[in-house]
Design a protein around this nucleic acid. Structure first.
Lengths: 104, 104
DNA sequence: TTTATCAATGAGTGTATAGTCATATGCTCT
DNA sequence: AGAGCATATGACTATACACTCATTGATAAA
């Protein structure tokens, strides 16, 4: 079995890329098909498809087939909590940097 | 200014690598100097140093000098919450896979 | 001021990743 | 069966990354 540490790294890696972050942000409101996702994030269909499949493998997304379309969703609601924490920390860092600038 | 989405990706990327995960796990108990970290995780000093600096840039760690030694700490306690969520999701996925195997 | 110690960096290598374009697969409907 | 749409994949390129070995920089102690 894959080591727990590698599985964690894989899941984090699946979150750690701008295009994939755009997808995750877009999926906040619920499931969407590829044909909705790639225009919304401004990426090519093929590139979007690769990222989606990658996030499936990492356990970040799940998918459902309906006719021709394939609908993707965030698999674990914890993903949103993780994203909120990350955003909070980044904002704190930005604020901290500004304070330092002001102090200088 | 860097886009918020890129800053988030940078911070997540700083967490998304086995060697760096080992460092973060090791820093759970508090600050440690490089000379303690690299033997603990079984990596070369130079490699460890690069990862540490990378995590500083991403806002994951902070550091403090004391004589010859440089002590690194987790900068935001939220990092631990993020790690706990990731671990939880990965474990759920492992369990889910096992159930499928049993059912098959 | 020499020596020893801790940490960071330069240079190089091999591999992984993101992206593109073209094509293939699979499903639906006529 | 054939046309048309939605998604996935093959092949390729350019860039980023992790790592190693050797060296440098900086502080401390003798």
């Amino acid at each position: 079995m894959r080591e727990l540490i590698d599985l964690r790294a894989d899941m984090l890696k699946a979150l750690a890329q701008p295009t994939r972050l755009k997808i995750i942000d877009f999926l906040r409101d619920g499931e969407r098909c590829v044909c909705e996702i790639f225009p919304a994030i401004g990426e090519e269909q093929s590139n979007t498809s690769r990222h989606l499949n990658m996030m499936i493998s990492a356990g970040v997304l799940s998918r459902r087939k309906d006719g021709l379309k394939i609908y993707y969703t965030i698999k674990h609601p914890e993903i949103f909590a993780v994203m909120d924490y990350i955003t909070e920390m980044v904002k704190q860092d930005i604020y901290g940097r500004h304070s330092l600038l002001k102090a200088a």
